[in-house]
């Protein structure tokens, strides 16, 4: 039964990769690549249960984190063209800081 899930995820991966290669706009590509990353996390999780090596779940977690960070990084650069300034205008940032810190 794990096999069914793995095959389904592999099919999903291939379709997502196709969209990443074809995607007319850059956002299509990024969305497809983000989806690819998420599905890789699931693939590793299912794979670790399939083989019984449950320490592989650590890897799935790392993947999930890294995938998020790289998507944030690419979007950040795309909407700003640089890495210096914060991703927000000051009004919002002050408001958020008060509530969360």
């Amino acid at each position: 039964m794990y096999a069914v899930a793995i095959v389904a995820i592999l099919v999903t991966l291939s379709l997502a990769l196709a969209r990443a290669l074809m995607g007319p706009t850059v956002f299509d590509r990024i969305a497809a690549i983000n989806m690819f990353g998420t599905k890789t996390v699931l693939l590793i999780a299912v794979f670790s249960f399939l083989t019984g090596r449950l320490d592989l779940l650590d890897m799935a977690l790392v993947y999930a984190m890294i995938n998020f960070i790289s998507v944030v990084a690419v979007l950040r650069l795309f909407s700003h063209k640089d890495f210096h300034s914060p991703a927000e205008n000051n009004v919002i940032s002050v408001k958020v800081r008060r509530r969360w810190f």
């Binding site: 990443a20 590509r29 990024i30 690549i33 890789t40 890294i66 790289s70 650069l77």
Partner: peptide, 15 residues
């Protein structure tokens, strides 16, 4: 598109 290429590099590393 260089953004997409860099994202593909990330996919390459994942794979």
């Amino acid at each position: 598109n260089l953004f997409a290429v860099i994202m593909l590099f990330a996919i390459f590393s994942f794979l």
